Amino acid sequence: MGYAIVWLVNTILSLMTWAIILSAIFSWLFAFDVINRRNQFVAQLADFLDRITTPILEPFRKVIPPLGGIDISPIVVLLLINFLKILFNRLTAPILIQMLG
């Protein structure tokens, strides 16, 4: 059971990382007019990624101002997610595995 919980937490953190990366890539592609929102699939995918990442990024966007028009909050959040992942795997995961097997 402990291994399953550790796997689930790591998977959720990895999915959050990929969602933030994909959201940033989509925003760049929209900004440089490589893709547009008129394509229904692209619009739905971008809307889905925005709905997932906005609650995570918004508190950091309120605190961190854009630098020269570039939003660095995704970078800060990715660093924080990786920090949490390392912290969880080093401190909490062994305890969960030992207690729950």
Rank of each mutant, 00 (worst) to 15 (best):
M1G: 08
A4W: 09
A4C: 07
A4I: 12
V6C: 01
V6M: 09
L8S: 15
V9K: 02
N10E: 11
N10C: 09
T11W: 13
T11F: 14
I12V: 15
I12P: 08
L13W: 04
S14M: 10
L15W: 12
L15Y: 12
L15M: 12
A19N: 03
L22W: 09
L22E: 09
S23C: 13
S23A: 14
I25P: 00
S27K: 04
W28I: 11
F30L: 14
A31V: 05
A31F: 05
A31M: 07
F32W: 09
D33F: 04
D33Q: 11
I35T: 01
I35D: 02
N36W: 08
N36K: 13
R37P: 01
Q40L: 13
V42A: 11
A43K: 08
L45A: 14
A46S: 13
A46W: 06
A46G: 10
L49H: 00
L49K: 00
D50Y: 12
R51C: 08
R51V: 05
I52T: 11
T53M: 04
T53K: 01
T54S: 05
I56R: 02
L57P: 01
I64A: 03
P65S: 06
P66E: 08
I70W: 08
I70Q: 10
I70T: 11
D71T: 07
D71P: 03
I72V: 13
S73M: 00
S73W: 00
P74S: 13
I75L: 15
I75S: 02
I75V: 15
I75R: 01
I75D: 03
V76R: 04
V76K: 00
V77A: 03
L79H: 11
L79I: 14
L80F: 13
I81E: 00
I81M: 03
I81A: 04
N82C: 07
L84M: 15
L84I: 12
K85Y: 05
K85S: 11
K85C: 05
K85D: 13
I86P: 01
F88Y: 14
R90P: 02
R90F: 03
L91D: 05
L91N: 07
T92M: 10
A93L: 09
P94T: 03
I95H: 02
L96P: 00
L96K: 02
Q98I: 03
Q98M: 10
L100I: 13
L100C: 06
